[in-house]
Structure formats: structure tokens, C-alpha cells
Nucleic acid binder design. Sequence first.
RNA 1: UGGGGUGUAGCCAAGCGGUAAGGCAACAGACUUUGACUCUGUCAUCUCACUGGUUCGAUUCCAGUCACCCCAGCCA
Length: 551
Amino acid sequence: MEEINNFIKTIMEKDLEEGRVKQIVTRFPPEPNAYLHIGHARAIVNDFELAKAFGGYTNLRFDDTNPVNEGAEYVDAIIDDLKWLGYTPKNIYFGSDYFEKTYQKAILLIKKGLAYVDDLSPEEMTEYRGTLTEPGRESPCRNRSVEENLRLFEEMRAGKYANGEKTLRAKIDMSSPNINMRDPVMYRILHVTHHRQGDKWCIYPMYDFAHPLQDAFEGVTHSLCSLEYDNHRVLYDWFIEKCEMEHVPHQYEWGRLNITNTVMSKRYLRQLVEGGYVTGYDDPRMPTLVGLKRKGFTAEAIKNFIIYTGLSRINSTTDADNLDYFLREEQKLKATRPMAVLNPLKVVIDNYPEGQIEYVEASNNMENEELGNRQIAFGKYLYIEQEDFIEEKPNRKWKRLSIGDEVRLMHAYFIKCESVVKDDNGNIIEIHCTYDPETKSGSGFEGRKPNGTIHYVEATTALKATFNHFEPLVFDETEETQGKSFLERLNPNSWTKLEGYVEASLKDTKPLDRFQFIRNGYYCTDKDSTKEHLIFNRTCPLKSSFNPKNN
RNA sequence: UGGGGUGUAGCCAAGCGGUAAGGCAACAGACUUUGACUCUGUCAUCUCACUGGUUCGAUUCCAGUCACCCCAGCCA
């Protein structure tokens, strides 16, 4: 794996050289209310790899300051995802474990006259906040005495008030052009059971107040987050300073990562799952880490993708090709390559003895001998891919089978097509070929060159298989679909069933119920993603220049 | 129309005063037991959003303009 290198690394290097920090400490702070996706992977990989590059460490901290949508199932899922990616946090913390310490800091701010209890309703607060172009107005509660604020805040904690009745606000500047500085709410009242704290608390700190303190409590040196928090950095620093934190963490932002033809927001992913558009968060078409895993991605491929893609302060949308490339690269030498026929066309070898089956030696991966060989069947009756045969060769570049032509069956013999059998409607139902025993694979025969090479399975020993063929979820962005919701733009035909055959060597594999077409291979995982996934050798997709329809 | 951020090829992304790295994609050719893989070559030069300025010299510094993103949750 390439060593990580980006602008944040440069910042860390300087901080170390110039003595501002002694050790790099980062944190990955997910809110436990959703499954992790490839966008989170950018944060994870950078948080961990950057700290590791300098001999520092990384904590996992669940940012569980809003109990409303959070839950233990997400905590477990996130821990699993991190483990799958191969990262072990030095510590696993929960923001909610700091509630008491955070509360004490709020008291400190009240005592310093920098925080006050406000009675404004949510609607009033919005009104008082002003707009992007107009300054806000000060709340009538802004000048309460320290004693009164202390009393009211204690009462808030004690549960004397209902949700929304009161808040604790920082006293900063209602006319600041940065709206985040217009007396941001520090605590709100939520009579909700917390997944870890139970009913111990009914006031919960807001992100802007809790996050910097959590970073400081843990000794985080570089607090990395995405660009939308750029506007919050002054507030982050304000809380660190005014709360008199011993340790001073700093926040740095980078751009979010998007992938073409996919959606990444929690809300959309939830809609896809709850609306039944996909089979779950681990549907292989989902950009979630569990989805990518089922699709056949390895942690290594994802890490490499993140590292090579780089990092900048631009919110970028990278081609899905960029992601796929790293999987292909990863699998070239690792995946075994058994054969499967997805759209079978029956082949009869006329000059091969009826009832005879022979086994030929096949390499599991031509580029990696360590993966060994297997025996595959050859006989009188075979299946090949329908798209690998055409009656009349459309042009010289056609490298597959056609009448009168000779191709190599991978790992086996040259066959030559002599004739076709059609049904009443003119559809080809089987083709008749002859084989040349001299051309057996591995025999060293070089008498003539075949037109090309195609894959096959022996018909009487092959296993029937149903393939759920899926393609990425595609969200149309044509003029027609402009203005429509993302669900209306969703291409619904991204999952189809194919009835085909696989070679007998796959008999111990659990059902191959999904696969992804990437370039010339189908990457498969078995039902539980436990088995190394496979690339079924097959012909390349018909490029337009090779498509007979275009000739 | 307030504030903040960003603009380098189809997509990512280095460079940050000395004459535009790299990867993906694409294209051309060689090779090939799949047209994949591998290898070779091409792919920003009146050019680094645009316009001016400073300079011997600017993608890099300055000024202005334009475009896009973020902020008006008691979400994170």
C-alpha cells in the first residue's frame, strides 16, 4: 500500500517539527445513527493512516449527544466495519461518558458570564437569530444574573422543564456575520432515553459545545472533519479557550468524497432501504461498507482507493471507475477464475464420443501459479455464452465463434463451428462443432492460431445456477428527470435474474446469488461473504466497435 | 444582496515565484489460453476560472470579476 500523503500530513509534519505537538492523536467520531459508507471510509482511512504515519494513535469516539435516532445496533455495526477495514482504535470512547465533565464546563461558562439560560421558544429563537444579511436581536433573557442562570440550569438538569421550554446558550455576538456565533445553543432539554445513559440525563449538549471539549478531554491534537464544519471552527476555538481547556486541539477540514451514480446521504440510504428499493443496508448496490463488502470489495481495495484518490479542500465526485480499478488491481493476483456461462447456448461436438468425459488441467489464475490448478470436464455436450457466437462473422475483428471459424475453448481444445440448429421461429437452439484433439491445451500445439478464446462449461457435469445480476444504482440526470426526487430518477432495472451454469468445481460454494460486472469479470461472493470472491472468466463486454448490431 | 470555503485535463490530484507530477478514464499499437491482463505510445504550451497589476520571470504574490459549495436545527 502506498504511503498516505496529503495536505493534512504536511500540517502534522510541521506541528511535530516545530514542537507544537509531541504526538499525533486523531479520532474518528461517528454518530451511531447510521451505517458507515464509502464517504466515511475517507475519514477513517485518513484518521488512522495519518496518525500511524507519525507513530501516533486514533480513538473511536461515538458522538452520541443526541439520543433521538441513536442506538446500540449502530454502535456494533460501526465497530464491525472498522474491524473489517483492519483498524483497531487505541480507545473506544462515548461522548456521553463525558456528560458530567461537559456539564461542569457549562457551569464554568455560566459563572464567567459567558452562558445564559434562555426561555425563547424555537420559533422565537429563529426569529431573533436574524438572517444571512441581517443581524440578530438579543434575547430578553440574555442579561440574567449568574445566580439565576445557575439556578435555572440546575433546574433544567433536574427535569423541571419540558422539552423546548429552555436552553442554555453561549453569550457571544448576536450580530456576528457568522451565524454560528449568534449565541449558539449549548444544551437543549430532551426527555428521551439515551442508549447508554438511560434516563440519567434530560439535557443534552449540542455538537458545537460537546465536540471540542471531547477532543480536548481525550488529548486529540488534530481533529479532522469535513468542509461544512469550516464555519464552526471559530466557535470550536472559542469553547476551547473560554472553557480553559488544558489541552488545545485544532480542527482541520477536508472535502467530502462522492462517487458518480450513487447517493451517500443517510436520508437517501434510509429511503432506499425502507422503501424496499434495495434488500437492506448490505445490498451490494449500496455504497455502505457492508454493501461493498457483499459486492466483493476488500478492505485493502477500499483503503488503496482512499489513499490514491488523495485529499483536498474540494468536495469531489470521483468516477466509480476509480473505485473499481482498485478492486480489479487487488483481485488480479488473488482471485481464482472458475468458469460460468450466464446465457447458455448448447454446443454439440460431433466428433467426440458419446458418453465420454475427460478432465483437463486448468489454472486457477494464470497470473499466479500459487493458486494452483483444477480439473475441469470436457465432453460431447457443452454450453458456451450466447454472445460468444454469431452465425456470420460481422468483421475481421470478431474474435469469437461463427460458422466455419475456429476458436479455443479455454483450457481445452480448438473447436470449429459446422452448423446451427434453429427452432420454428428461427432462433438458434444449438450449434454443431468439431474439435481437434491435437490442439489440447498445454500440448504445445502451434500449428495454427484460433480466431479467439472463449469460455465454456461441460453440460452433463455443470451445475445449474441462478445469478442475480445487478448493476449499480443509477440516478438519471437527464433533462426529463430534472427536478424529480432521487427515487423517481432511480433506474429500476438494475437487478435481473439469469439462469446459467457453473463448472462442477464450485459445488462446495454456497449459492452465488449476486455478482457485479466489472470489466471482463464477475466478482462473486458466496452467501455470507466468507469465501474469497471469484472472477468468472468471460468475454469482454461488447464494445460498440465489436457489436454486430453496429456493423 | 452578510460571512466562510473552493476553482489545475472527462474524473481525482501534486506543484505554492523559475517555465504544468502521478493515477483513473480515453485513444493508438504490440502481446495474449477471452478483445481481459501486461507492455509501448498519445493525451493541459497562445495553458492552471477570467481580467488586470507587481516581477527578468506568475498556476504560484496583489487587486478586481465570475462560477460553484457551506451557514439562518433546541441535528451532527
